[in-house]
Design a protein around this nucleic acid. Structure first.
Lengths: 243, 243
DNA sequence: ATAATAGTGTCTTTCAGACATTATGAT
DNA sequence: ATCATAATGTCTGAAAGACACTATTAT
């Protein structure tokens, strides 16, 4: 099998298989659900870690994908049905003890989606999917591999970026009130923000337009807004302050 | 050979070798030399890309290193003699066309050093080392693999971070004038900075102390400073403006 | 009318940029 | 004395936080 692989790659150089590592890509897919930051997990139906919940990632399909990005997009579609979503690379981790099958490496991505965009059904491989609050991923049973750690580090990255980047845009529905946007920030950061300061910051940024519609139900209605351009994440010149 | 490796890892799960990829780590080691941002390159003495210049990275030594970080530190020492330097992970890239030996993945790191800390001699493997200005890495001959691309992306990352992080600290000698620090910023960003605004920003940050010594040679001498704490990179609350 | 929430205005602070002024040592 | 550079001060503008005040709708 080794020699057949050498033939398959058809190159002129000797490849020592021992230079290879098990490689996977793991997306940390986040959303806000019931006012909590949640991560999308799948129930593993195969060894190792069969029966445990983990990130919807896996090996790259070297036959069908010629680079990491398309491989991840492919995996996302296959495991979650998601397409054309926002994701960015966060970090790569690896070592001898990450996977019982041996020395392995994983590249972790942060994906931000609206929970409505994820199908409720089990995926193509018959694995169940669930959203789980990021603070309690380990409550029922430990996650597969180092996935808990990977999620933690991704959340930290998100919190660091939300200080100056309007990443919560990806969690918002088409139309929303500024209050709803602020609440998204508050959920991510885990602390309240000054209502007036936040509003002013957002309004000055010129990234929203009024829809003319309003919320209804609780006292004074709030204007509903829509993003002018969903393809660009606004970069604020100043940072949200520590307290 | 394949089956012997399965034995070596000694695990209970089947490992499909086809799930493995060639994996390497490539540090982009930067310094400021002759008022230019330069990257440390090695001349490859082995195929593929033999004779071309490239980044001083390579495969991880799975026998001796149990995680990516120690593997990189090990590689750095072996290839450049550098130890205990600042580096951070930048991104991971890979695909079918990056290496003629087949589908491969590389994790790229940014390392910032003082050029005096790099030995002039060829490394342990007899490979020559040189500093090369980042704008002209391809002037003589194309670099190995996708290394030019990897360097470019790393420089972009550095420029984005220097706006708010005092990363040039790692380029500075023990004692230096504020002018010298500003020049480091200017070399990295490729544009002049307001002298007064820069000075005020640095002084207010409270990260330097006077040494009592002064520059000499050109007209009025400048005070020489030293970092209070070299272990922490100062994070400015505001960003250096675009122009 | 009152309560609750939405939206706006004012003041303060912080910090970067622009510009002016003073300080100091080489020539 | 002059020149080049170093260091400091003043003014302006942008933006965030705190707080007050007005606006609007359900009850």
């Amino acid at each position: 099998m080794l020699s057949s692989q050498k033939k398959r790659t058809g190159n002129l150089f000797s490849v020592d298989e021992y230079d290879k590592v098990l490689f996977s890509q793991d997306p940390v897919i986040l959303t806000i659900l019931n006012d909590k930051l949640c991560v999308l997990l799948v129930k593993r139906e195969q060894e190792p870690c069969k029966g445990q919940w983990g990130l919807p990632g896996g090996r790259v399909d070297k036959e069908r994908c010629s680079d990491l990005w398309t491989a991840l997009a492919e995996k996302l579609k296959q495991k979650t049905g998601l397409e054309n979503i926002y994701f960015e690379q966060v970090f790569t981790e690896g070592g001898a003890d990450m996977d019982p099958r041996g020395w392995s490496v994983t590249t972790v991505y942060m994906a931000l989606v609206r929970h409505e965009d994820v199908p409720w059904q089990p995926n193509e491989m018959g694995e169940a999917l669930k959203w789980w609050p990021v603070d309690h991923v380990n409550d029922a049973a430990p996650l597969a591999f180092w996935h808990e750690r990977l999620i933690e580090r991704t959340i930290t990255r998100l919190r660091n970026k939300v200080i100056y980047l309007d990443l919560p845009m990806y969690f918002m529905p088409e139309k929303f009130s500024i209050k709803a946007l602020r609440e998204a920030y508050e959920v991510i950061l885990g602390r309240p923000l000054s209502r007036q300061a936040f509003d002013k910051r957002v309004r000055k940024a010129n990234i929203l337009v009024e829809t003319g519609e309003e919320t209804h139900g609780n006292y004074r209605p709030a204007e509903l807004y829509r993003y002018i351009d969903r393809r660009r994440v606004h970069h604020y010149s100043g940072e949200l302050k520590a307290k």
